[in-house]
Amino acid sequence: MRFGIPRGLYYEPFLTEWKVFLESLGHSVELSPPTNKEILDMGVKEGVNEACISLKLTVGHSMYLKNRVETIFAPRLMNLDRWKRITLCPKFRGLPDIIRVSVPDVFSVNAYLGTSWRRFSFYWKVGRKLGSDLGKILRAYRRAREASIRVFELMKLGFLPDEARTIALENREVKEREKKHGSSIGVVGYPYLIYDDYVSHSLIKRLTNLGFNVITPEMVNPKEIEKNLRALFKPLFWSQSNKVLGAAFYLFKRPEVEGVIHISSFSCGTDAWVGRLIEFEAKKHGKPLMRIVVDEHTAEAGLVTRLEAFTDLVRWKKGRARA
């Protein structure tokens, strides 16, 4: 079968993992291209106007794939944490059904990916539904996991998801990236926002060009995240939000991090809490924090101005501390 995997709310390392798995089972897979104007326009036209930009984009990416593939592969992401009760934002839970409103052919299985057993049973269900036998599924599963762990490791080293996927799929050897000697800036936010160059206007690349080391939640040790989350009365209900929050708490404590940028999307429900909790914490540590809210109308010029003002502030603060 010809499958298409939409970007938008789906992000790395799942894209690689699913692509490798389906290809090892003998199906062809097409990833939708990085977001562009055409995809955004389709998503905004079809999607509900109250939804966050990433949900609209997912619809747009699916519309793009509609005539190019037979079926959209859109698992219902339910859980990424060892606690089964920590789930994902409701938009993920309703995603296959939302895509079905515009594109009727959707292949979907509930995905609990918190532990290795849950993860395997997800792939087992997918494989059985596609009519493969145990041996084939096991082989495909192992390959998919290898690729996805590789991507995960590469992203931890600071590679952007698209680079990491290409390297993992081509099985190239890489050297560790040299660290710049400038200051570090933490960029926290959901992976589907901060790594989407069209939505975030390549914020990470811009910061790197300005001479900063960028630290994203993907580069923070998961154990540190969990440790820092204990400061809360109870954890948030959504896996990525916990990751963002824990990473932000950790980054505030690190001396080498000079400032933190929180990227959030307009009308993002979970970020209403995450944003305010980060603000509370930033005040305690006295570190510069900038919150950027993006949507389909965000202009590049305005964003660049804010970014430059923020980096000036960070540099000025550092200079004053030395003097």
Partner: peptide
Amino acid sequence: PFSCMPEVVARSILER
């Protein structure tokens, strides 16, 4: 309510 997460999902689907 504006930006309610579950209801935005429902709203997308009510269209269908």
